[in-house]
Nucleic acid binder design. Structure first.
Lengths: 259, 259
DNA sequence: AAGTGGTCTAGACCACTCT
DNA sequence: GAGTGGTCTAGACCACTTG
């Protein structure tokens, strides 16, 4: 039997030690450890890209065996919240400085793999329209930031994005900040606003280009485009971004893997 | 130190016992166990939907600890090749008799969740066109089966599929067989032909409906449709199906989850 | 050489299902 | 109650990275 937890205790209702767990609403120890680790990430104590304590260290802190910590970390690594590197340690996942930039962008070129150029079209404070507010669990009229931008491949526009973010979470966000930044927006969101996207849901449709989209994407009006509506979530399954992308799929495609 | 394996030995090159493993091309024991289990599935010794031996049983057979078998099965369950059911055992995953039918179909209705009606349009033996053959790693002109079918929701056509299968794997496949069968094709492929799809890759584009597709899907010519090109794989990452679907996304959408 | 994650074992006990 | 998967522990050793 291990010693009592060194620092942080497991005070979740009716648990603590597995022996105390009875049938209804049973939560295994490793799930509680996972929740504690997530809390550290959420609070910003362990930031994106940083090294977290070793498994042995965590095991001592939480008063459990290494194997239990391991299972918790395993799950989080599988969900892309943490990254394990043998011999080095475990790191908090990040959308910046990653080999695969644009982790959430599934658009692939038919040939080659050229980098995408970004072009900011607009960035302004807005009041939330009803539909946007509903998706983000906010109220109609709440302050928001709307960003519009274009992604191009070898000069040819490919993606037109319309992005909505809660105003209170992204206080200093401006066109200047966005233009200064290199790499994907999600990297900037992490470092500048402490908002880390961990998963997203997309609804994909085929639509006809309207006049404005057609002009920006340089396709004929009525041309078929991929409409990709993305709802992104941070820790605690909180929706923090609604994004509507129009993808020109003449020389690119949306890649998906099914299991 | 455990006793020598009871029946099947681990004869993989330069391994067998982890102690014998040296740096280059190191393969952990559980990965070898996993390969052995996959071999059982591939050979048809354990069929889709069936119960496989218990972890303790497998551990004895393979001469390893339960934990090692567990890790192998864990991975396979994560990849949807096996399904664990506490208290009952571990089963071979199947596309038939599953709560979620159409495991690979990501199309969702905007409202409700009505079942889809199938309508077979065509089923005939063909010679492989160059493009199809290439994707399936066959030769142009090889015998194939082409199936065309329509899926409808509440009478309204939603999906038009054009399916290509290797002729040698699907010998007795005919319109009659397909019409007799209930549920997804992949279920029939398992029971009748022993072909089990374990994963797939999709390339998605927005396209304009041509005359024929428009008529079948009851949309105007030129209407935007989702083109979903799916390449499906069996055990050993062997491509065994190429499918081109046209989805009408007026009242449905393609749902995807990003991690 | 020290520290980290990765593998493997052996054994205990719990939760769940079926008979 | 017997059998299955699920959790947890403790300890050993391996593979990899860094000083």
């Amino acid at each position: 039997m291990p010693a009592a937890p060194a620092t942080t205790l497991l005070n979740a209702p009716e648990v603590g030690r597995p022996e105390a767990a009875t049938s209804p609403s049973f939560s295994p120890l490793y799930a509680q450890i996972k929740a504690l680790i997530i809390a550290k990430l959420q609070s910003g104590e362990w930031k994106a890209g940083e090294l977290i304590p070793s498994e042995l260290d965590l095991a001592k802190r939480f008063g459990v065996s290494q194997g239990t910590v391991r299972k918790a970390v395993d799950e989080m690594a599988a969900e892309n919240m943490l990254v394990r590197r043998q011999g080095r340690g475990t790191f908090v996942a990040t959308h910046a400085e990653q080999k695969v930039q644009y982790r959430f962008l599934r658009l692939m070129p038919d040939q080659g793999s050229e980098a995408l150029e970004r072009q900011l079209l607009d960035c302004r404070r807005q009041r939330a329209p009803a539909a946007i507010a509903r998706a983000l669990q906010m109220r109609t009229g709440d302050p928001m930031v709307e960003v519009r931008r274009l992604l191009s491949s070898k000069g040819a526009p490919v993606v037109l994005d319309d992005i909505w973010l809660p105003g209170d979470l992204f206080k200093g966000l401006s066109a200047e900040r966005l233009n200064l930044h290199r790499g994907p927006f999600y990297g900037l969101f992490e470092t500048e606003f402490g908002v880390h996207m961990i998963r997203a849901e997309e609804k994909i449709r085929a639509v006809a280009a309207d006049a404005e989209s057609a002009a920006l994407l340089q396709v004929p009006v009525g041309a078929p485009l991929l409409s990709v509506e993305r709802l992104s979530f941070t820790y605690g399954d909180k929706a923090v971004e609604l994004r509507r992308g129009l993808y020109s799929t003449a020389s690119h495609f949306y890649r998906n893997e099914l299991n």
